[in-house]
């Protein structure tokens, strides 16, 4: 998070995390395509020759003026492939919130779990506990035949019954805005809580 009093700017960082080929980059492409030029940055992608994320994708949203403030959201993805663990940890540094993008295909459930644990470990290395940190879980590719039931996915990740899961078909844009909105609301709520705690 970055706060500039003189310009009344608050900039927060949200990271899209999850297994390889789960749809993290697709989420950012959809956000880029649905937001007008003047309210976002260019979409930056550090990719391999095979068009896979090498380091990260990046997009900034300017949310206009809210209560005299100019909030901004910086959105990053991590590279999902196992070998890029060091890069994932770097991208997660300074994150204020996470959208975990899971894959609905039955054969990817173990990958979902490993990525979830990988994320929790990296968050812990920065002193954050997954519980209490603003994390939104999105289950992508809901249109695929054989997509796992929500409860199966919930059990795989060990999520309790109250944790919301946002169903998505990121390729069509479905669930993308809802996930972004939810994570931003949680980030702001946490920020308010921190401020209140510090003022007490």
């Amino acid at each position: 998070m970055y706060i500039n009093y003189a310009r009344r700017e608050i900039t927060v960082k949200v990271v899209y995390y999850g297994p390889a080929l789960g749809g993290k980059t697709t989420n950012l492409i959809q956000i880029h395509d649905h937001v007008a030029d003047g309210s976002r940055s260019e979409l930056i992608s550090l990719k391999t020759a095979e068009d896979r994320t090498l380091f990260f994708d990046f997009l900034e949203l300017q949310l206009g003026k809210i209560g005299g403030l100019a909030p901004r959201a910086q959105l990053y993805t991590v590279p999902g492939q196992a070998r890029y663990e060091a890069s994932r940890r770097l991208v997660l540094r300074g994150a204020d919130g996470v959208v975990f993008v899971g894959d609905s295909q039955p054969e990817r459930q173990q990958d979902n779990l490993e990525s979830w644990r990988d994320m929790a470990r990296h968050l812990a290395s920065y002193g954050f506990e997954a519980q209490g940190f603003p994390i939104i879980v999105q289950l992508n590719k809901r249109d695929l035949p054989g997509a796992v039931p929500l409860e199966h996915f919930r059990r795989t990740l060990g999520l309790n019954g109250e944790a919301p899961i946002f169903e998505a078909v990121a390729l069509d844009g479905r669930g993308v805005r809802e996930s972004l909105r939810a994570v931003m609301e949680r980030v702001v709520v946490r920020l308010r809580r921190e401020i209140s705690a510090s003022a007490a």
């Binding site: 949203l61 949310l63 206009g64 809210i66 209560g67 909030p71 805005r177 972004l180 909105r181 939810a182 931003m184 609301e185 949680r186 702001v188 709520v189 308010r192």
Partner: peptide, 9 residues
């Protein structure tokens, strides 16, 4: 503020 941010999105 959180609701306003959501609305802005």
């Amino acid at each position: 503020f959180a609701d306003l941010v959501g609305q802005a999105i």
